[in-house]
Write a protein that binds this DNA or RNA. Sequence first.
DNA 1: GTAAACTAGTTTACATTATAAACCAAATTG
DNA 2: CAATTTGGTTTATAATGTAAACTAGTTTAC
Lengths: 93, 93
Amino acid sequence: MSKLNPLLHQELRLSIVSFLAGVETADFKKLMEVTQATKGNLSVQISKLQKAEYITIAKSFKGSYPHTNCALTPKGEKDFEIYLKELKELLNI
Amino acid sequence: MSKLNPLLHQELRLSIVSFLAGVETADFKKLMEVTQATKGNLSVQISKLQKAEYITIAKSFKGSYPHTNCALTPKGEKDFEIYLKELKELLNI
DNA sequence: GTAAACTAGTTTACATTATAAACCAAATTG
DNA sequence: CAATTTGGTTTATAATGTAAACTAGTTTAC
């Protein structure tokens, strides 16, 4: 019984990481779109992922508006894979 | 983005349901053994699963000691399958 | 040129949830 | 008969999740 990584075993964060694992980079707007989360929730959860060094958050300006770009780090990728492996074991899939 | 069933998307409850899906019946002791959870936590979580009609909890006596037996209901089984399907979609697996 | 509405987020207050410690009742053991 | 064990439940606290409220600036319309 290896405990599932609690940072990843949460729907919104899992959605974010899973999506980033496929595309390697996505902005705030895109993440809102694919996850259907509220701005507040998304903001909080990407911060947690960043604190854990699972993603990088790059802030810049696109025209005059702020723009936030997220990408998975190698650490995030690795721990996501471990999570997947352990989840599959738990669920026998 | 179909939201993952929050009752099932919790490690201990998921472990319980996943295990019961394989065996169809297990007692408290067995569930403690396979999940490695504390008694208190296990007690709380099986109660929640029972309230949701995902499992049945049958109390009896085995010799002189109380004995609690759990089994998945058809509803639990069905929602577990739906959860699995949606989880796989989310994770592309 | 200024009020209203929009973009792009962050902060924070509240509600929900999870968890283990404390508890309980009965049985066993020494 | 006191201490320990079995088989749990209750509950207090901590941790977490979430959306509403807020910030800061931009664009549009009058």
